[in-house]
Simulated assay, not measured.
Amino acid sequence: MSFTKKQRSERPTGRHPEMRGTPRGTRVFRQRRKKLGFSLFCALVVLALAGLGAASLSGSSTSTAEPVATVDAPVPAEAPEPVDEARAQEAEQEAEREAAKEREAAEEREAAEERREREEAQRAAAAAPEDPTTYLTVPRLGVYGHTVRNDSSEEALATGAIKVPQTGFPWEEGDTNTYIAGHRIGWPGTESDYQFYDLPLMQQGDEVLLEDSEGRAYNYRVTEIFAVSPSDTWVAEPIPGRDVVSLQTCTETPDDWWTIGPSLYGGGPESGRLVVRADRVS
Rank of each mutant, 00 (worst) to 15 (best):
P188V: 10
E211F: 02
D151N: 13
L209C: 05
A181W: 01
A158L: 09
L157N: 03
W234R: 11
P200L: 02
G174T: 11
L157E: 04
R216F: 03
E224H: 14
F169N: 10
I239V: 15
T178M: 05
I162G: 07
E211A: 09
Q204K: 10
E237V: 07
R216T: 04
A181R: 00
S192G: 07
I185C: 14
P170W: 04
E237Y: 15
L209A: 04
D198S: 10
S213Q: 12
T176N: 11
F196S: 04
A156Q: 02
E224A: 15
I185W: 13
P165M: 14
P200D: 01
Y218F: 15
L210E: 03
V164K: 11
Y220H: 13
E154S: 15
S152W: 04
I185Y: 03
A227D: 09
D175L: 15
S246I: 00
N219S: 07
T233L: 14
T167M: 12
D198H: 10
S231V: 06
A227Y: 06
V228H: 13
Y179R: 02
H183D: 00
Q203P: 01
V164A: 09
G205A: 10
F196G: 00
S229P: 10
I225E: 07
G168C: 09
H183P: 01
D193K: 11
T167G: 07
L210S: 02
D212H: 05
D232G: 02
E172D: 08
T159N: 14
E173R: 08
Y179P: 00
I225L: 06
P238L: 08
N177T: 03
N219L: 06
E211Y: 00
P165Y: 07
E155L: 04
G215Q: 02
E154N: 15
P170E: 10
Q204M: 08
R184Y: 04
S246T: 13
Q195L: 14
E214H: 05
I162W: 02
N219D: 07
L199T: 01
M202S: 06
T178I: 05
D232V: 05
A156T: 04
V222F: 02
V208F: 07
L201R: 10
A236L: 10
